[in-house]
């Protein structure tokens, strides 16, 4: 029974982080119909920013969240404004190729700057945690979970309650109508990409406390983001949380009940089931998920 609770908690905790890693990807895809293949590399950049800041100034990794968030927001804003906005009206393959190229560029830049050596951040409380019977709940994972869910909810509030958020949502529903209503579509796109990148950066910070990373580990996060977004529903904030936690639980239970070797098979099997039974995703709404041309 201890094992059951332990696996349940492990699943939920990693699910929260998955949700945070996927939300930026989801927003960018939902609003602009743009699949950002460089998303994983942006997460890694956030992790490196945290690594550099903590090793230089000795501050707690969780305190670097604003640093990585702001840095990635600015980078994302500029990338959208000066690169992607030029091709966004064209075929979806153009944006795919562009973000794929961007991914390669980022990875090779990290290799030059940070070298291929692995990094990990080990704060003093790493490995410590609460004990509930024989169930261990590590502080770092709980911290990452709380921040991840908190940031996702904040973003959700921002989208629903602010004027800018409404403008972003309006653009995602109908670009032309939003434009007629006085929304500067390209500026909204740049801000949206900035937000997506900023969320990726902060997810990177949270990830760096738990996992080890190197310039090439981003790819796995892009894959997971894909699965989560399809599971939860495109562009939906609660969908990302639900999708992330389902993925986390599926992986963890699969690795105990079947064999650790099957955990990826189980999560992708889940993806196929959802695509067959509910192609919009669990919490997806119709207008978000439709691929516009």
């Amino acid at each position: 029974m201890t094992l059951f609770w332990q696996v349940l908690i492990n699943g939920i905790l990693s699910g929260g982080l998955y949700a945070c890693a996927a939300i930026g990807f989801s927003v960018i895809w939902g609003v602009m119909n743009l699949i950002n293949l460089a998303h994983g590399s942006m997460i890694i950049l956030g992790a490196y920013i945290t690594y550099m800041t903590t090793s230089t100034f000795g501050i707690d990794p969780f305190l670097t969240l604003p640093v990585s968030g702001c840095a990635l927001f600015i980078l994302g804003f500029l990338i959208q404004k000066y690169l992607i906005n030029h091709v966004i009206g064209g075929s979806i393959f153009m944006t795919l190729i562009l973000t794929f190229g961007l991914d390669l560029l980022l990875i090779n830049a990290y290799l030059l700057i940070f070298s291929a050596d692995l990094c990990a951040i080990t704060p003093w409380y790493a490995g410590l945690g609460w004990e509930w019977g024989n169930v261990k709940i590590p502080y770092t994972r709980v911290g990452a979970f709380v921040f991840a869910i908190g940031l996702t909810l904040l973003l959700s509030l921002f989208m629903n309650r602010t004027k800018l958020g409404n403008a972003i949502r309006a653009t995602s529903f109908d670009k032309d109508a939003a434009s007629l209503a006085g929304v500067d579509v390209f500026k909204v796109y740049a801000i949206t990409f900035g937000i997506g990148a900023g969320m990726a950066g902060m997810a990177g910070t949270l990830m760096s406390v738990i996992y080890s990373f190197s310039p090439v580990t981003g790819e796995i996060f892009t894959m997971k983001a894909f699965v989560i977004v399809v599971l939860g529903g495109l562009g939906s904030m609660p969908g990302a949380i639900v999708g992330g936690i389902i993925l986390g639980l599926a992986e963890n239970f699969a690795s105990v009940l079947l064999s650790p070797g099957y955990k990826d098979a189980v999560s992708f099997f889940l993806l196929v089931i959802i695509l067959v039974l509910r192609p919009r995703g669990i919490l997806g709404k119709r207008f978000y998920a439709e691929v516009r041309d």
Partner: peptide
């Protein structure tokens, strides 16, 4: 004795079994 897939980011539940 178990193996895990390449590129795994989370081994915690596997290790929970090892602890048992």
């Amino acid at each position: 004795k178990e193996k895990y897939p390449s590129g795994t980011k989370d081994l915690s539940s596997m290790l929970a079994v090892v602890r048992e």
